[in-house]
Amino acid sequence: MTSEAIAFLLTEILYGTTTSNEGTTFLEGDQALIATLQSLTPEQASQQPQNLDSIAANLIHLNAYLGYTIATFKQQEPAYDWPGTWAKQIISEDEYNAEIQKLQTQAEQFTNLLNHVPLEQKWPLVETIANLCHLSYHLGAIRQLARIVKHD
């Protein structure tokens, strides 16, 4: 039941609605991560209002975090470089589309791995829920930045 709930909420954060179309727990479709990112141009995603990290940087960081988690789930030891995940702020159109695609692919991998992660143990479970919260946190950040860069 826990892995089902996590997969359901991950889908909601990324796409807003579920395949069963039963509604959402807090996100509408156009407010979800993929639709929000796709509504922006790479130029908008590369803006840094008042020197904040850009939407592109938030996206690249999200993908890195998710990638580290997937590697850990696969019993690998990733080479963590947290400052490096925030280094790139400006993105081309090809890079932007590739990062959005990477997010979708990694989210799918993450969901598929849920059945192989020992969720009956505290730390794997905490890490899994942390990933959900981390995605949710950056969606909240990205949506504020999107409103600002679109307004400009």
Binding site: T25, C133, S136, G140, I142
Partner: peptide
């Protein structure tokens, strides 16, 4: 938890 994290991010 996800909802509170979303608003913390915002």
């Amino acid at each position: 938890v996800g909802h509170i994290a979303y608003h913390l991010g915002a």
